[in-house]
Design a protein around this nucleic acid. Sequence first.
DNA 1: TTTATTTACGTAAACGTTTACGAATAAGAG
DNA 2: CTCTTATTCGTAAACGTTTACGTAAATAAA
Lengths: 334, 334
Amino acid sequence: MGEVNIKKLASELNLSAATVSRALRDSHEISAETKARVMEMAKKLAYEPNPFASSLRQQKSKTIAVIVPEVANNFFALAIKAIEEVARAKDHHVLIYQTHESGEIESSFMTSLLSGRVDGVLISPACHVANKKYFQKVSEKIPMVFFDRDHDDIEGVKITTDDYESAYNATLHLVEAGCKKIGYLAALETLTTGKKRLQGYLDALKDNNLESMPALIEGNCENNESCRSKVKDFIAERKPDGIVSSIEELALPCYYACKELNLNIPKDLKLITYSNLAHAELLNPPLSTINQPAFEIGNEAATILFKMFSKRWYDPNITISLKSSIIKRESSRS
Amino acid sequence: MGEVNIKKLASELNLSAATVSRALRDSHEISAETKARVMEMAKKLAYEPNPFASSLRQQKSKTIAVIVPEVANNFFALAIKAIEEVARAKDHHVLIYQTHESGEIESSFMTSLLSGRVDGVLISPACHVANKKYFQKVSEKIPMVFFDRDHDDIEGVKITTDDYESAYNATLHLVEAGCKKIGYLAALETLTTGKKRLQGYLDALKDNNLESMPALIEGNCENNESCRSKVKDFIAERKPDGIVSSIEELALPCYYACKELNLNIPKDLKLITYSNLAHAELLNPPLSTINQPAFEIGNEAATILFKMFSKRWYDPNITISLKSSIIKRESSRS
DNA sequence: TTTATTTACGTAAACGTTTACGAATAAGAG
DNA sequence: CTCTTATTCGTAAACGTTTACGTAAATAAA
């Protein structure tokens, strides 16, 4: 059928394909009059350039990949929102991949991107990691930016938050609120992100001569049942009077657990957590949060990626840290 | 540099490019031995086929587009999660586009997809609509499925929920809880989705001989300040004793408004809303919700799209409706 | 006027696949 | 032994762009 392409335009206008192509790209080699004619005909025939032919020829895809553990997550959804907006402004397309925290899935995504399908990658790595070689392989070939999560043994451009300081300060907040037995719900333990948060928690307690109670809740917290019961067991057995949660997915189970255990938040247990819940204020009680600037992280990561495209970015190994904000609410009140 | 492609593989193996290509695609025309040799060499050289060359030649992109108003939204994030999973299982890629409720942006996305960039489109249309011609244009050329939202004057394959029934039943629930002046926070009024919800609300009141109080809150509810004050004004001026909210983004402002107006939920005002908040139960008070099966909608829409690809779907104009579930909680207790 | 430069366009190759067509060899049928 | 068929591979064209190179005409420089 009459698919309209450059050749069709050319024959319609009695021009060569080359001229049409140049006219469409507003080349200086083409007269204003010809450009106008070409544009008009392109519009008339509703010409849409074939992106694959372009990409094949130019070795550019005008597409970026975003690899995240999950889309249905307050933090990542916000980051993706920002990324898509930046990409749109730069007339680029956005491919989404979910790893579900699996290193193998991540690996297969990453290596498939070596085909040239995308011009750049934004990644927040999975916490279950298999073999990290693919990070190096990909970043050697295409610009790549880590956001939020990263591995300390992998070099690269990284946009993170002040994980250590925010965990330290959140813990300190609970100490100042009078907590003596502060537990920590760990996650992301294989990632720099998780390690720093844990260290911030540990150091804050050490600096205040308090014992630490870190607990690693294994398993995917999507599965609420098992996750809730583990959190409940932790609270029941260790009887903390305060909890710092390293992820939102471990904090909300505390609410359910406390209900079941007849514990009052904040009287019996004070709680603060990393979270991007938009309405933490509406919870019962309002939840104290360490709020990461998710949108800004996505925005910054994408912006830097585009700078890398245009060679306006030279440092291949840098970590940029954005500040989280601690919002103290009822759940940690003394 | 030594980019490895089919020609490279071919020369390395003393074969023709055609043979290598066929071997990689497991063609019956190639001997088992040759296939093995090719596979081995491909693995050894870490060959990744160029997707643009493939797509150009085959006129297939192995990519689908998802067009949504926003990614950072509980409903759409869940739907996208499901869609990505289905696409992954089918070895397809997922492009994400946000319209921010703008018909013009939507139009430009849609028409750009006419280039063949994607094999299919999943769309939840923007509520501000300019000129709907592009829906027809696109669906004539590539398989397309509407999900959650749709226009009644556009034909197509649509996956929705029981908007009328759920709104009717939610309203009925408030009636039975003793409400006499039930307000309605309207949204999506240009879409079938919004119209049906409104009608369900209106009919439920009519059937119970009660007056209706629909209120259309204009403007993007992302902007919480203006949205909140409008909701607050509505409650203060019209003094409803019950509210059915057509979207989550209008229900949560009710919590803030009631705080400011010193109204108690549910004593002074009972509230029920469409929502995909994972933890409505933890709000103060727990929020009664009309819960749409977001994941299932995404899953169903994507599954049908792939059936359309393989011609296992013939009905070009059908609406499949999934059931929402009404979860009654404290916010609407009598 | 001659030469050099600019302007505006065309020709053809290239990007990396896939595939229609053809051909050579081997195997089977008669 | 000849003829048919199956098996296995190669040649070359095609997908729709972009771009290096060439060229003719027009203009400027000498």
